[in-house]
Simulated assay, not measured.
Amino acid sequence: MDLLLFFIMFILGLIGSFFSGLLGIGGAIINFPLLLYVPEMAGLSPFSAHQVSAISMFQVFFASLAGVVAFRRRTKAGNTNNAVINSKLVLYMGSSILIGSLIGAFISGLLDERMIHLVYGVLAVIAIVLMLVPSKGRLDTDEPLTFNKMIASSTALIVGIVSGIVGAGGAFVLIPVMLTILKIPVRTTIASSLAIVFISATGGVIGKLIAGDIPVEPIIYTVVGSLIGASIGSRVSSMINVRLLRYGLLVLIAITAFKVWSSIF
């Protein structure tokens, strides 16, 4: 085992998933730049954009799987604050995002490094905008959930394609869309988006396996760190006000986006 590789990838997985669990956003928006730049700065061989995308997708898959398992445990214990996964919403958005992430993951193998950087750069700008604009969903009620199925499906398909290219789950885009456009209640959004992102990551992982260029050893080390980091982040998020950290993360994403766009032009 390369101890330096293990240490760097474990720490990156830990940090990325910690902020993911802390702030409730898609981990890939943090993990992509960390995986792209930090290993080379630490003296390791740099990963290509294709490899970074694959590592990030596997990390999102296992982190979201851990989140779904944790949610089910809290549900059995009666500790979800009435949050509920809406099966119809998951069916429409989950099936669309699965198809999209499969397509996106396959497409990523056909794109050059510049194009993958471009897609991440666009996603980073979208993430900054969505994190700056507060998304307020309606409160949960006992009334049956209604939503525009066409908008839900088409939006999820687009998010899936783009997320599959860079190795994301798409939660940081899906959640604001569900809250502001589809008008899904807050708790239902939180619970259902977790299941939808897991489906998205499943499609992305399958697509990456088909496309190839999978760095197995770094993925294993990163996943181990991410499982620990996500758990810690989730616990910390319930104890502190994360507003300042959220804005700090905005600065980090903005700096990374500037670096990525600079490398493109």
Rank of each mutant, 00 (worst) to 15 (best):
K76I: 15
L252H: 01
L36Q: 02
L91F: 14
A83W: 10
V60A: 15
D142H: 06
L118T: 15
I30L: 10
F47H: 09
F6R: 01
G109C: 00
A201Y: 08
V84M: 10
R187K: 15
G27R: 00
A254F: 15
P39N: 05
L209R: 00
I85M: 12
S45K: 14
S262K: 14
F19H: 08
T141R: 00
S45L: 12
F19G: 04
V236Q: 02
L14G: 02
K208V: 07
G160V: 05
S238V: 06
T75P: 01
I15Y: 01
G204D: 05
T188C: 05
G26C: 07
I220F: 14
N31C: 09
A42M: 15
G212Y: 01
S200M: 13
V52D: 01
F147P: 07
L111F: 14
F10I: 10
A42L: 13
L5G: 10
M150F: 14
L34E: 03
G13F: 07
S238I: 01
V52A: 01
L250Q: 04
G167L: 10
K208R: 13
S226N: 03
V84H: 13
D2E: 14
G21D: 08
V173C: 11
L182S: 08
Y120S: 07
L98K: 04
G160S: 07
N79T: 10
R138Q: 12
F62K: 08
S234M: 09
T80M: 11
T155A: 11
S263H: 08
A105E: 01
V260A: 03
L89V: 09
S108V: 06
L36G: 00
K149F: 01
I151P: 00
L102P: 05
P144T: 11
R114V: 14
P134H: 03
L35N: 06
G207H: 03
G160N: 05
S95Q: 04
N79S: 14
R72Q: 14
V129K: 11
P134R: 03
I228Y: 02
S200R: 02
I85W: 01
A211F: 01
F198Y: 10
I199L: 15
S108Q: 12
